[in-house]
Nucleic acid binder design. Structure first.
Lengths: 321, 321
DNA sequence: TACATGACCTACATTTATGCACAAGAGGCG
DNA sequence: CGCCTCTTGTGCATAAATGTAGGTCATGTA
């Protein structure tokens, strides 16, 4: 192995199962991957992959090479992390991953404020659906909605959340008698999430009249849309439900505990100025909005949310000064 | 770190302490090393070395990178070894390291025979003075003159050796009275090795008349030359001394134990056909010459050596058939 | 069977990296 | 002090790797 870089190609080919996939991942042409692989195989005097019509399958020697390549990759990632951890500069890029549904207006405003405060820090938002790996430094900071984050990550819970049932005003009006327990025979249609039918969360329908599934989905965005169309009521976090102008809390059903929000980073990065500064800032901002995430008791919920919004604006402008 | 190969350059620069040295080791132009290093530093956004007049000295970040590079290198070496260990082919290169002084005629004949038997195996003799590292696969097989080889190596002792005092016939004739203990006043001049004056081997001069240093050297080749010139007697292995046509054993001094000969390989390579075959062959050949390495008692020494040579030729031709 | 698709290989143009030659600067030494 | 050697940095020609485009093969589908 005179050329350490060839292992990178071998690893990519193994992971993607073919030259084309590897080329995509590596950001090069597939011909390059083919040639690099051929070079490595010539140098080693072994075939690392058997060429099949369905792609490239590692030989025994290939598997040996792949396992070593994985260890090398781990060391490379560790080096990247170690170098990043030593980074004392105030300026530079900061990759932040956030669940797409959290990246709403309030958050966007936070980012705007942060950029105003720290123009040198180049915040890069990654609203990817897949969970990015902080250990591989796919992001520097993660905002996560989870009960318990990986123990190997460093950070804190910034706010608990509560969830409730939301529906269109027309829906609430139509089923008024059911909500007020005058009509005990009609079942309330609701938007069901696919995951619920594998294992139903405990207490999901407690304190509700009888219900029935109106439609199933596995996507929160479409669920909200369906709810807005009046197809059924949807269970969602108080933040999401209450911030939707076309939805209202269904009456007579209290909020219940939901998944908390965490702000996390890789332990090695916890002393990097950019990272600490961003985490401190965003944690404060989210905490200040706690009422939005938690909601208030029953009837006063809407009013309270509005006043929270006002409070938030006050804080934001205060920080911006 | 998008380019894993740049770590190789960093490591070489760190080890050699400069661009030129690294370039020599890597077998490339120093300009290439400089550019690769610059590229890596740009990518990381850190300087790995501070440029001094005396060379390049690693920064803190550089030390981090170097330590990671060392681990990566270890993995690369391990991969090489693992791939070599899986090598089932009868053909290919086989690197053999041997102390230069052992690479004499008999050994050369062995190699010639081996090549005749296995034309596909491309034996590469490394008669380097420095001890090559089998763990880094600088050689596949090592023939070593040592009391106890590294425990991490695999192989066996093929013959013990005995050493004696040798001198030119003129020298022996001149000091005949001293050797025969008739002249007890004259000290015998001998060629001293520098190492002896740091810590004298036990029993070096036992059973010898009084001696004095004629000249000191740290090199066996020159010591032999000096002895041939009649400057003094030299202590050397029986093999070396007896095979020199211009030297004879000094009378009245018995042979004594010397360092044994081992044939060794890396444990991972012990099942590779080329390696096992070579080790078996060379061990047999050396063992067959045991009388040469051990010598015989006193007076009959020369005669015995000659008959051994004859025996050896018989064996060699037998194998060659 | 014909067709479309995906994956790989190959020939050629182009970009990129490398080696070479030279210049500048820093010790070492008579 | 000047001379020498060693090391590093910079243009320029060359060599090597890469991208592009076309071709082949196998597979799945109408």
């Amino acid at each position: 192995m005179t050329d350490w870089d060839s292992l990178r190609y071998i690893l990519a080919v193994a992971r993607e199962g073919g030259l084309s996939g590897a080329a995509r991942v590596l950001g090069v042409n597939h011909a390059t991957v083919s040639r690099q692989l051929a070079k490595a195989e010539d140098a080693a005097g072994v075939r690392f992959f058997t060429r099949l019509a369905s792609g490239l399958q590692p030989t025994e020697a290939g598997q040996v090479a792949i396992s070593h390549a994985e260890e090398v990759e781990a060391r490379m990632v560790a080096l990247d992390m170690a170098l990043a951890a030593r980074d004392e500069t105030e300026e530079g890029e900061l990759k932040v991953t956030i669940p797409p549904l959290m990246a709403e207006d309030n958050f966007a405003e936070d980012i705007k404020e942060f950029k105003a405060l720290h123009p040198g820090i180049d915040v890069h938002l990654l609203g990817a659906t897949e969970v990015l790996n902080l250990h591989r430094r796919e992001a520097d900071v993660a905002i996560r909605v989870t009960q318990a984050p990986e123990e190997s990550l460093w950070g804190r819970m910034v706010t608990p959340q509560r969830a409730g049932w939301f529906a269109s005003p027309e829906f609430v009006e139509r089923y008024k008698d059911v909500f007020e327990r005058r009509d005990m025979d009609t079942a309330l249609p609701y938007i069901g999430f696919s995951a619920w039918f594998a294992s139903t969360p405990a207490g999901l329908f407690s304190e509700l009249p009888p219900v029935r599934v109106a439609i199933k989905t596995d996507d929160m965005v479409s669920a909200m849309s369906l709810a807005r169309q009046g197809m059924g009521m949807v269970r969602t976090s108080h933040l999401l439900g209450s911030s939707d102008p076309k939805l209202v809390r269904v009456p007579g059903v209290p909020l219940s505990d939901h998944t908390p929000i965490w702000v996390l980073t890789h332990p090695d990065l916890r002393h990097v100025p950019r990272v600490t500064e961003f985490m401190r800032f965003i944690a404060n901002r989210i905490t200040a909005r706690r009422a939005l995430y938690m909601g208030l008791d029953e009837s006063s919920a809407n009013a309270a949310t509005r006043s929270d919004g006002a409070k938030l604006e006050g804080i934001a402008s205060e920080i911006a000064e």
